[in-house]
Nucleic acid binder design. Structure first.
Length: 279
DNA sequence: CCCTCTGTTGGATT
DNA sequence: CAATCCAACAGAGG
C-alpha cells in the first residue's frame, strides 16, 4: 500500500503489536517472500531464507524498528540478524487471533505469546523481507536512497542540488535516490500544493518554486500519518472517499479554481494536475 | 465468460 | 536520459 505515511503507520503497528511480546513461532507460507535484497525480482529469492528468518525471530522480542523512506528495519533482542521490510504495492501487516485460518495472501505468519499472530500479507507478491546482519542494517536500510522526506526535510538549496536533472519534476520526485518516501500520489499532490507543472524539467525550477516544493512535501505527508490503533492498517485513504485534491480526479473541478483536472502518463504512471494552477 | 485496462513499487532493458 | 517491459494478481468495465 505504501508511500511514506503508510510505511510509518506499519512501523507503529508492528511496534504496538509486538512490544513486550515474545515471538513463539514463525511459519513461512511463501518462501518467495524472503529475498537476499529488497527487490521485486523473483531472481532475488533467498534459498533457505525461511530457516534464517525463523532463527532470527523465534524466541525473542522486538528491540527497535526504524524507517527510511518506504523501507523498515526490524531489530530483535540479542539476535545477530535483523529484517528489512519492503511493502511494494500490496504488502501489508495485520494482527489476527492465532486460531483464525490464514488468508491466502499470507506469506509469513508470526505467532506471538499473547494469543495473536502477525501476518505479512501480499497479493501481488512484489513485497519482500530480507534478513541482514545487524551491523549492516542501518546502511542497508538507506542504501541508494536520498534523505527521508519527513525525518530529514530538505530546504530549497538542498532540493536544487538533488534535482540536478533534466527529467520532469514529477518523475524525479519518484526517484528514491533524490528523496526517499514520496510515491505516485504524494508526488503529484505535493506539486499541486506547490503550483508546479509536473512536466517542468527538474533543473529549471525557480528558487521560489523549490522553496514552495520543499515546504509542500511535509505539509502534504503529515496529515496522512494519523491512523487508527486497530488490528488492520486502516490508513487515511482506505475505505471511503478519495481524500486527495487531484489524484484520480480527471475531469473533476480543481478544488482551488474549478478548472477540470487533467491526466497524463509519465514514466508509465498516471499523473494528475490542474492546468490552470500548475504552470 | 472473455478481454482489456489499471495499479500507493522498483529494477532491467532497449 | 527516456520510454517500455516485467514481476503476479485483483478489480473494474466493456
Amino acid at each position: 500500500m505504501p508511500e511514506l505515511p503508510e510505511v510509518e503507520a506499519c512501523r507503529r503497528d508492528l511496534l504496538r503489536w509486538t512490544d513486550g511480546r515474545t515471538i513463539t513461532d514463525l511459519t513461512v507460507e511463501d518462501p518467495a517472500a524472503i529475498r537476499y535484497k529488497l527487490s521485486t525480482l523473483t531472481t532475488d529469492i533467498l534459498v533457505d531464507g525461511g530457516d534464517i528468518v525463523r532463527s532470527t525471530v523465534i524466541g525473542t522480542q522486538t528491540e527497535r524498528i526504524d524507517r527510511h523512506g518506504k523501507r523498515l528495519a526490524w531489530r530483535f533482542r540479542d539476535r545477530p540478524m535483523g529484517l528489512l521490510l519492503f511493502l511494494s504495492m500490496t504488502g501489508r501487516w495485520v494482527r489476527r487471533p492465532q486460531n483464525e485460518p490464514l488468508s491466502k495472501r499470507v506469506r509469513l505468519n508470526f505467532v506471538l505469546d499473547d494469543g495473536y499472530a502477525v501476518w505479512f500479507e501480499d497479493t501481488r507478491r512484489f513485497a519482500c523481507v530480507t534478513p541482514v546482519p545487524v551491523e549492516d542494517l542501518a546502511t542497508a536500510l538507506a542504501v541508494g536512497h536520498g534523505p527521508d522526506a519527513l525525518l530529514q526535510p530538505v530546504d530549497a538549496a538542498t532540493l536544487r542540488e538533488r534535482l540536478n536533472t533534466k527529467r520532469a519534476i514529477k518523475v524525479a520526485l519518484l526517484d528514491q535516490t533524490v528523496l526517499a518516501g514520496l510515491g505516485n500520489i504524494h508526488a503529484a499532490e505535493s506539486l499541486f500544493r506547490a503550483k508546479i507543472h509536473p512536466d517542468t524539467p527538474a533543473n529549471e525550477l525557480t528558487s521560489a518554486q523549490l522553496q514552495a516544493l520543499a515546504a509542500a512535501i511535509p505539509v502534504q505527508l503529515a496529515p496522512f500519518l494519523e491512523h487508527s490503533l486497530g488490528d488492520d492498517p486502516t490508513y487515511v485513504n482506505l475505505g471511503g472517499e478519495n481524500p486527495f485534491s487531484i489524484y484520480q480526479r480527471k475531469g473533476e473541478p480543481c478544488p482551488v479554481c474549478s478548472t477540470p483536472i487533467e491526466r497524463q502518463v509519465q514514466a508509465g504512471r498516471s499523473t494528475f494536475w490542474c492546468p490552470s494552477c500548475q504552470r
